[in-house]
Design a protein around this nucleic acid. Structure first.
Lengths: 163, 163
DNA sequence: ACCCACATGTAATGGGTTACATGATTTA
DNA sequence: TAAATCATGTAACCCATTACATGTGGGT
């Protein structure tokens, strides 16, 4: 079984054909989501783990003096990846939403602070949606946009729910 | 600074006036979200941590022979809680979504598997939305319902995006 | 020469998970 | 009275985070 970070990293390598740990770390670090930091301390050991499990094959790709390790997905890796990718039960879960987590407890503060808070969240979300898209394929961008749209719809519903 | 689990636990205690670690653990364990397990191994140390930081005040609430510790929020706790609760910057983040994480890589499988996967996710989500509501206040239920609605809207958009 | 981004890691720490231990209380 | 649930923890493990160490290469 793959963790979500492992699955996402493996998928990224599969998409690219081959990649270094650094390249994968950068993808997470530059993603619009704040959820994974893309730190070296997470990614380098993770890639090593996947290689040790036979899901990745390293190959020395010396370029200049510097040693570099490129990784490619193996057949076993493809099997594990598809199992993670198509796990509908996990995919249908609610995950974690920092706003949702707070909303249920907002009655603990005054109505003014509640409204102000929601206003700020909307402002940040809109600014976030309008900033230039992150680097990535058009497909990824489109999925991101659709998610932003759905979230905006939710934010629009909330006044009626929160009061 | 509070972590999200700490914030949510503190908020739950604040809402209830007083609660045991067990009661808090049960809330997470029975929540419709799978994200936090609500395990004793997470919650008991967490509550102790908050008490050690002066955000919670324990009080022996012996009931029967059994020793029990009730916790109440302190003034310092209320300050920390409000800081977490009204942190709009964090609240506006994308969090983690197990479906969103997978969608960007679905091109790695055949169109048939993709469609089948999305169909399964929709089926599970609908079943999830129609099952009897979890135990909780009407406010919480309403927020949950609105979230489910927004997610259903997103799922409806996805065919056009994924192709 | 100097600074910054690229690049590859390791170390210490934090905190959540599963699994286990132990005992009290309720229900069939 | 046996089983299930309530209730309170602890122990070992896993893995992501921050911070650090080290070196390369390009731009000013």
């Amino acid at each position: 079984m793959l963790t979500n970070l492992e699955g996402a990293a493996l998928a990224e390598i599969a998409s690219r054909g081959a990649a270094t740990s650094y390249a994968i770390a950068r993808v997470f670090a530059r993603s619009p989501s704040e959820y994974w930091s893309g730190s070296a301390g997470a990614v380098y050991p993770l890639i090593k783990r996947l290689a040790a499990r036979g899901l990745l094959q390293p190959s020395a790709a010396a370029e200049g003096r510097r040693q570099r390790l490129d990784y490619q997905i193996t057949d076993a890796g493809r099997v594990a990846l598809e199992e993670w990718l198509l796990d509908a039960q996990s995919a249908a879960g609610m995950g974690f939403d920092p706003l949702r987590t707070r909303l249920g407890h907002l009655h603990l503060v005054s109505p003014e602070k509640r409204e102000d808070f929601l206003m700020q969240v909307r402002a940040i979300s809109e600014a976030f949606a309008q900033r230039p898209a992150f680097e990535g394929e058009p497909r990824m961008i489109a999925i991101h946009q659709s998610w932003l749209k759905a979230r905006a719809m939710w934010l629009a519903m909330l006044d009626a729910v929160i009061k």
